[in-house]
């Protein structure tokens, strides 16, 4: 054993560092485990079919989260529908069209800045930009989320665009294809994985978002339809959780929603990992 040759001081350092590391890892792992188990244990007993399938009624004093579920789905759909083309387009511009290094670095800096801005500021600006003109509504919330998620979609798409071999582009240009044809037929099919990964990450982020939605999409709990309902205010699951926990003290419902969100988070992380693994395997073929 080499430890025999170590001085007391070095041995102490070794033991101390090892202990600190194990402690930290244990703490992190314990935290995740605790949060998962605690939220699920508190939440799952409160999840009933009635809760999931009704809207809150002041007459019967019962709470249902159907509107919140629907609102969440609508906002996710609407935000993705808008942000995907924008983000993918921006990424294509950066990797395929832009020839000026300066323009590229300005755009990339802007994207980094966007991803660093906290959601409460997005909420405020979304309120000024969208809600003040179209009223507090799901659409205003979705548009705010579009700006928030733009950098995510851009980054994942850009990363996968970079993995499309340059030789594909050369081959297509060498046959006399124009830029757009090269992008459409050779480059775009190669970045599907980035787009899907970005979409999954965005769904996760939208599901968890609350501060940006408070003042843009509002608190209402009425059942709406898609897409006309986008013009009405509505709470998503997270906003409803906040509302029930902080304003009404309905912790049972809050935990039920928290458990649902937790399960969805696990599923989304799983899906993202799965997609990445699938495409990595396909690429290595």
């Amino acid at each position: 054993m080499q430890n025999q040759f170590l001085s007391e001081k070095r041995k102490g350092y070794e033991v101390l560092m090892k202990a600190l590391m194990l402690l930290s890892v244990g703490l992190t792992a314990g935290l995740v485990l605790f949060l998962l188990v605690y939220v699920l244990m508190k939440g799952i007993p409160n999840i009933t079919w009635e809760l999931l399938s009704t809207k809150p009624s002041y007459l019967t004093e019962k709470i249902g989260i159907l509107p919140d579920i629907l609102n969440t789905v609508y906002i996710v759909l609407a935000a993705l529908l808008i942000v995907l083309p924008l983000g993918v387009g921006a990424a294509i511009y950066l990797t395929e069209y832009a020839s000026n290094r300066k323009v590229v670095s300005i755009i990339e800096y802007a994207a980094e800045t966007l991803s660093g801005i906290p959601s409460i500021i997005y909420g405020l600006v979304g309120m000024l930009l969208f809600s003040n003109s179209m009223g507090t509504c799901l659409l205003a919330g979705a548009l705010t989320l579009v700006i928030m998620n733009l950098p995510t979609i851009m980054r994942t798409t850009q990363e996968s665009l970079k993995t499309v071999p340059q030789s594909y582009r050369e081959g297509a240009f060498g046959l006399g294809a124009g830029k757009w044809r090269v992008v459409r037929t050779v480059v775009l099919p190669g970045c599907v994985d980035g787009v899907i990964t970005g979409a999954i990450l965005s769904v996760g982020r939208i599901l968890g978002e609350s501060a940006a939605l408070l003042f843009t999409a509002g608190f209402a709990h009425t059942v709406l339809t898609f897409p006309l309902g986008m013009k009405s205010p509505g709470a998503t699951l997270t906003v409803a959780l906040y509302f029930y926990a902080k304003e009404q003290g309905e912790f049972g419902v809050a935990f039920a929603i928290a458990a649902i969100l937790m399960v969805l988070t696990v599923l989304i992380n799983f899906a993202a990992a799965l997609v990445q693994r699938y495409f990595a395997k396909r690429r290595s073929l």
Partner: peptide, 24 residues
């Protein structure tokens, strides 16, 4: 395994942290 756990920690909505914080 730990990296997925950390990703999960990153993905948990802030209101859920708030809720658990409030009650624990």
């Amino acid at each position: 395994v730990m990296q997925s756990a950390v990703s999960l920690l990153a993905g948990i909505p802030s209101v859920v942290y708030g809720l658990v914080g409030m009650l624990v």
